[in-house]
C-alpha cells in the first residue's frame, strides 16, 4: 500500500484536476470520489489534498471561493481554470509517455503465466 502511495504521490495534482475537469468540487467530495473509484484502495490525506490545492491555486490552475452553506460550516469550492485544463492535458500526455516507457523498460520478455 505504501509503495502504491509513493508511486501515485507525484500525480496527486493531476488526479485532483481530473476531478475538477467537468465541474467544481470541494475537498471532501474529491477525496470521497477518489476513494470510491479506487474501491477503497486509495485515499488522500487531508494535508496532501490541501497542499496540492494551494500549489495548484498559486500556479493559477484552479481558483477557489467560499460557499454560502445554509447549515453552518462553509465549504471551499474549487474550479479549474483554462490554464489548468491545458496543464491537465499535458500531465496526461506525460503520464502516457511515462507509462509506455516504464512498460518497455520493465519488460523481461517473460509472460506472466509461465
Amino acid at each position: 500500500m505504501t509503495i502504491t502511495a509513493d508511486l501515485i504521490r507525484g500525480h496527486t495534482e493531476t488526479i485532483i484536476l481530473a476531478h475538477l475537469y467537468n465541474n467544481e468540487s470541494y475537498g471532501y467530495k474529491i477525496n470521497k470520489a477518489i476513494q470510491e473509484k479506487s474501491g477503497g484502495k486509495y485515499e488522500l490525506k487531508e494535508a496532501t489534498l490541501y497542499g496540492a490545492f494551494r500549489r495548484l491555486e498559486e500556479n493559477g490552475y484552479i481558483s477557489s471561493y467560499w460557499g454560502d452553506e445554509a447549515t453552518g460550516a462553509r465549504r471551499r469550492y474549487y474550479n479549474i481554470t483554462p490554464v489548468g485544463r491545458d496543464f491537465f492535458k499535458d500531465c496526461c500526455k506525460e503520464w502516457e509517455t511515462a507509462k509506455a516507457l516504464i512498460n518497455t523498460l520493465i519488460d523481461t520478455g517473460v509472460k506472466d503465466d509461465e
Binding site: 470541494y26 475537498g27 471532501y28 477525496n31 470521497k32 487531508e46 490541501y50 460550516a73 462553509r74 465549504r75 471551499r76
Partner: peptide, 11 residues
Amino acid sequence: KEELLTNLNEK
C-alpha cells in the same frame, strides 16, 4: 483550518 474542519466533519 476552517476548510479542514468542514471536510472532516462531513466525512
